[in-house]
């Protein structure tokens, strides 16, 4: 695992991607830091961080697009997966390498509150650092998503574009859910349609019509019986569910100075889930 980790991390600096990432990352955080904190005479580093979270939508796909897609394209995955090392270790090694590169950037910006502290001892360092922890976890979760998307294709470009779209959607989720109709009936219809799509995904993956139709019919039955019995539970159900997918929303808790454990658990679980999915995706390819 360490071999993969080392190779990936070094590769970021031999191919310039690492330097470019750090340069852009530090430049943008620096500009905001200058405007909000130094120029704006504000001791609130949290608000700086919360205004640069949009960075992830552009920067993270650049970091992650190559990770698996390039191995698939250059056929170097044949070396990795015929070596005496498990697929899990390969992917975890790669994930940790990207997270480490990102951590370098975060480490550098974590000196900024100290600069502010130098000017005024009234700066709340605890809040600033809780925000930095949240910022780091948010980025790490996005990296996992990016690697998962990268593992599904051979083309770096496709990986980057799909990642940007997915991250943008999670980023804009609160605004998107506002556009949905809020009454129970329309929400239940949307849920029912989404469930049918899920059943179709099951069918296209297993090619087993019986299983897919059982899943579809049972799910639909539960949804509609639930609606008959107690229609009010569907009020705002979809909006709430979708808002749960909004990753940047959770970050606001951190910027309020709350070290919210549920948010930490949320980010860590997203990271785990997508690393796990990447491993499964790669293992599945052996059988296709």
């Amino acid at each position: 695992m360490f071999a993969i980790y080392k190779k990936e991390l070094l590769n970021y600096f031999t191919s310039m991607v690492g330097f470019v990432f750090l340069a852009v990352f530090l430049a943008i955080v620096g500009v905001y830091f200058w405007y909000t904190n130094i120029g704006g005479m504000s001791g609130n580093f949290e608000s700086t961080l919360s205004s640069v979270t949009f960075l992830f939508v552009i920067l993270m796909p650049i970091l992650t697009m190559k990770v698996m897609a390039d191995e698939n394209k250059q056929k170097t995955d044949q070396l990795l997966f015929t070596s005496p090392i498990s697929i899990t270790k390969v992917i975890v090694g790669k994930y940790l390498a990207v997270v480490s590169l990102y951590a370098i950037g975060v480490l550098i910006i974590s000196t900024y509150p100290l600069i502010l502290f130098h000017y005024s001892s009234e700066i709340r360092l605890a809040t600033a650092y809780s925000a930095i922890i949240g910022f780091f976890l948010l980025g790490s979760a996005y990296i996992a998503i990016g690697i998962f998307i990268s593992s599904m294709t051979e083309s770096q470009l496709i990986a980057a574009v799909v990642s940007i779209i997915v991250m943008l959607v999670t980023f804009l989720m609160p605004q998107l859910t506002k556009m949905l109709p809020n009454d129970g009936k329309s929400q239940v219809i949307i849920i029912a349609i989404v469930w049918l799509l899920c059943a179709w995904v099951v069918y296209s993956n297993t090619k087993n019509l019986i299983v897919a139709s059982v899943v579809g019919v049972l799910g639909e039955a539960v949804i509609w019986i639930g609606y008959r019995v107690k229609p009010e539970i569907y009020n705002k159900m979809l909006s709430k569910g979708l808002n749960g997918m909004s990753m940047s929303q959770r970050f606001n808790d951190f910027t309020l100075g709350v070290l919210d454990y549920s948010a930490i658990v949320y980010y860590v679980s997203i990271a785990f889930l997508f690393v796990f999915l990447t491993i499964q995706m790669t293992k599945r390819k052996r059988f296709s």
Partner: peptide
């Protein structure tokens, strides 16, 4: 299965580590 932006020795060292 070669990584184009690695040097030959560097690549073989990586393979050696990979092959334990």
């Amino acid at each position: 299965p070669l990584y184009p932006d690695m040097r030959v020795r560097e690549y073989l060292m990586f393979v050696a580590e990979l092959k334990k």
